[in-house]
Computed example of a mutant assay.
Amino acid sequence: MDRQIKEAIILAGGLGTRLRSAVPDLPKCMAPVAGRPFIGHVMDYLLEQGIEHFIFSLGYKHDVIEKYIDRVYGALDYVFAVEKEPLGTGGAIREACKVAEDPQVIVTNGDTMFRASVPSLSAVHVAHNALVTLGLKPMRDFDRYGIVDIDPDGRVIGFEEKQPRSSGLINAGLYGLNVTEYLASAPPSGVFSFERDFLEPRVAGGRLFGYPEDAYFIDIGIPEDYKRAQKEFL
Score class of each variant (00 low, 15 high):
74 G>Q: 06
42 V>D: 01
65 I>S: 10
68 Y>N: 00
46 L>T: 07
33 V>Q: 05
33 V>S: 00
44 D>H: 12
64 V>G: 01
71 R>I: 00
39 I>K: 04
69 I>G: 11
17 T>I: 11
28 K>G: 14
51 I>Y: 13
40 G>V: 02
59 G>V: 09
31 A>H: 12
21 S>G: 08
67 K>D: 11
77 D>I: 03
23 V>M: 07
75 A>C: 00
12 A>K: 01
57 S>E: 09
54 F>Q: 03
57 S>F: 01
68 Y>H: 11
34 A>I: 04
36 R>Q: 12
33 V>Y: 05
34 A>W: 01
73 Y>A: 01
4 Q>V: 15
22 A>R: 13
71 R>Q: 10
55 I>K: 06
46 L>D: 05
63 D>N: 07
80 F>P: 08
27 P>K: 12
25 D>Q: 07
76 L>N: 00
78 Y>K: 06
79 V>E: 09
58 L>Y: 04
22 A>Y: 10
59 G>I: 07
36 R>F: 05
30 M>Q: 12
55 I>L: 12
73 Y>H: 08
9 I>L: 07
51 I>G: 12
21 S>F: 01
19 L>W: 06
13 G>Y: 04
12 A>R: 01
49 Q>D: 06
21 S>D: 13
16 G>I: 09
5 I>L: 12
74 G>W: 08
66 E>P: 02
71 R>V: 00
15 L>S: 12
51 I>N: 08
62 H>T: 04
14 G>A: 12
9 I>V: 15
44 D>A: 13
53 H>S: 15
24 P>E: 06
56 F>D: 06
68 Y>V: 03
3 R>F: 12
26 L>P: 04
58 L>A: 11
17 T>C: 06
60 Y>A: 05
29 C>V: 15
79 V>Y: 00
33 V>N: 06
4 Q>Y: 13
67 K>E: 15
63 D>E: 15
74 G>H: 09
29 C>A: 15
10 I>G: 03
24 P>Y: 03
68 Y>W: 14
27 P>Y: 12
71 R>N: 04
43 M>I: 04
13 G>R: 01
30 M>K: 13
60 Y>G: 02
23 V>H: 03
6 K>G: 02
19 L>Q: 05
14 G>F: 02
63 D>G: 02
49 Q>L: 05
28 K>A: 15
28 K>V: 13
67 K>Q: 11
14 G>P: 01
3 R>T: 15
46 L>R: 06
68 Y>E: 05
65 I>N: 06
49 Q>F: 06
19 L>K: 10
52 E>H: 14
35 G>A: 03
73 Y>F: 09
78 Y>C: 05
19 L>T: 04
78 Y>G: 02
43 M>Y: 03
5 I>H: 03
26 L>C: 02
35 G>W: 00
80 F>V: 08
21 S>M: 09
25 D>P: 02
16 G>L: 07
32 P>S: 11
76 L>G: 00
58 L>S: 08
23 V>K: 02
58 L>E: 03
17 T>A: 14
26 L>N: 00
41 H>C: 05
56 F>V: 05
77 D>G: 07
74 G>Y: 04
55 I>E: 08
26 L>G: 01
67 K>H: 04
